[in-house]
Write a protein that binds this DNA or RNA. Structure first.
Length: 240
DNA sequence: ATGGTAGCTGCGCTA
């Protein structure tokens, strides 16, 4: 029996993506939606839209860049976004319908040496935050492809900050905090979650839903890539 | 071969 549906989605602007978010709600009726790259300050977040669909909100926005949110059919308690002392809005956690949930937007890390360093620190901070907790569900854009199976064209990505040994080790620290990658490859390398708008045949799996002490089934909603004005990421859904 | 697109912003930055 399914008792909870959780979707994570890097929408690349929540306001531009509202029509597709509305379709997601109509098709899947998720209990929880974890958003990344909302790209707007809290005062401009489309609260009325979500509330009219009977959702509660916990938002952590920022002008132009980043921005994360937890959208839930249930009240959201113990909301926190101070994972570290950064001014970048990349993290939010809350407790809803009996579960700790997290929406995380890990830095890409290709902007500068500092950004790359911060990517490692950010992954370490997530691992530290949840290491001792009994149960949690983290959805997000981790900007890490863990293996060649997560890459449509591995040779094109050699040396990329999305798949260096260092960032893979950083991501491994999160797994080592007793999180499971719920993903199962069904029929080959076909479960990518992101494509650069300029390179439509070089997909990567960099969006994950990780859980500890919660079992469920993961599904990548590929058809959201073929719609009008798609995000560069597709939604990933976890059914408990 | 080092381009290309998208979003937000304001003629550049980030991905």
């Amino acid at each position: 029996m399914i008792n909870m549906k959780i979707v994570t989605w890097n929408v690349n602007s929540v306001r531009v993506r509202l029509p597709l978010i509305e379709q997601l709600i109509a098709e899947e009726n998720p209990d929880v939606i974890l958003l990344q790259e909302t790209k707007c300050m809290n005062e401009f977040f489309p609260k009325d839209f979500f509330e009219s669909h009977n959702y509660h909100l916990a938002i952590h926005g920022q002008k132009t860049y980043n921005g994360v949110a937890i959208i839930s059919k249930y009240p959201i308690e113990n909301v926190k976004w101070d994972l570290d002392d950064s001014t970048e809005a990349r993290y939010i956690e809350g407790f809803t319908n009996g579960h700790y949930v997290v929406s995380a937007y890990v830095p890409c890390g290709n902007k500068s040496d500092e950004a790359y360093k911060y990517k490692q620190e950010f992954l370490g901070s997530i691992a530290s935050r949840w290491k001792g907790e009994e149960s949690a569900i983290i959805g997000g854009d981790f900007n890490v492809a863990m293996s060649d199976d997560d890459m449509q064209t591995p040779a094109k990505w050699i040396g990329s900050v999305l798949c260096t040994d260092e960032v893979r080790n950083g991501m491994q620290k999160v797994f080592d905090a007793e999180f499971d990658d719920c993903h199962e490859i069904s029929d080959g390398k076909n479960d990518f979650t992101w494509w650069d708008y300029r390179r439509p045949n070089e997909g990567l799996r960099i969006d994950y839903i990780l859980s500890k002490n919660v079992s469920g089934k993961l599904k990548t909603l590929q058809h959201y890539r073929k719609m009008e004005r798609p995000s560069d990421h597709v939604p990933v859904m976890f059914e408990i």
